[in-house]
């Protein structure tokens, strides 16, 4: 029977804390950048210019339909061979995760916008608002309410996706866990703790999302 020994990991507490902070920081960056990309990509899907629709379609499908791990390796190892510019692991990670997340956010944002009744757009246009104003003043404020739950969902997935960056040696939570595991020969304890940390960070977040959803449904 295996005897657990968590005590010896106490000496690695700063390593875990450090890794957790890197993971949180990375998530924050790729969520913000991804949302920006998603907003641009999602609205471009609805543009009256075919070129914009085509470009955003290509972007969304390219990143939605290839594995994130492959994208990460491609941006870190393959892209520099094309451009001749070596990018560091953090940059490659942020770039890949943002582009990947953005492609999913874009679909959520596009879907939220088209879910608003055509009558709302017509009423805005009939008042003499330009299409851009109609989007900003009438459609988006209503659509955002419907988008928030799926956007949060996607962001939670992004938080977990950041664990992939350990393969290009970004010192995130999982990477530091691997360091501790090799050091101590205690992978069972280490990876249990790593999983627990991800869990402990995300569970309160999902609770907050649930509460926010309820408030949005009742409020204006």
């Amino acid at each position: 029977m295996y005897t657990f020994n968590f005590e010896m990991l106490w000496g690695y507490r700063w390593l875990f804390l450090n890794g957790t902070l890197v993971t949180i920081g990375l998530t924050a960056a790729v969520v913000v950048l991804g949302l920006l990309l998603g907003l641009v990509g999602g609205l471009a899907q609805l543009s009256r210019f075919a070129v914009l629709r085509w470009i955003s379609w290509a972007y969304i499908e390219l990143f939605r339909c290839t594995p994130l791990l492959v994208q990460l390796l491609w941006f870190y190892y393959a892209l520099p061979m094309l451009t001749g510019i070596q990018i560091d692991a953090i940059t490659a990670s942020v770039l890949t995760l943002s582009l990947y997340g953005g492609s999913f956010y874009a679909e959520v944002i596009r879907g939220g916008v088209v879910s608003i009744e055509a009558g709302q757009t017509e009423a805005g246009l009939a008042l003499g608002l330009t299409p851009a104003k109609v989007m900003r003043r009438i459609v988006l404020p209503q659509a955002v309410k419907r988008m928030i739950p799926p956007l949060m969902n996607q962001s939670i997935i992004q938080f977990k996706n950041t664990s992939l960056v350990s393969v290009v040696a970004v010192p995130d939570l999982l990477y530091q866990g691997q360091v501790a595991a090799t050091d101590t020969f205690r992978p069972l304890e280490v990876y249990t703790i790593v999983a627990l940390i991800y869990f402990v960070v995300l569970v309160p977040l999902t609770a907050i999302v649930k509460r926010g959803e309820k408030q949005l449904q009742t409020g204006h």
Binding site: G119, E122, I138, Q142
Partner: peptide
């Protein structure tokens, strides 16, 4: 359009 006021069958008020 701003010179014509339009009233719709289903009102289309802005709910927010």
């Amino acid at each position: 359009r701003s010179n014509t006021g339009m009233v719709f069958q289903h009102f289309n008020l802005f709910p927010h």
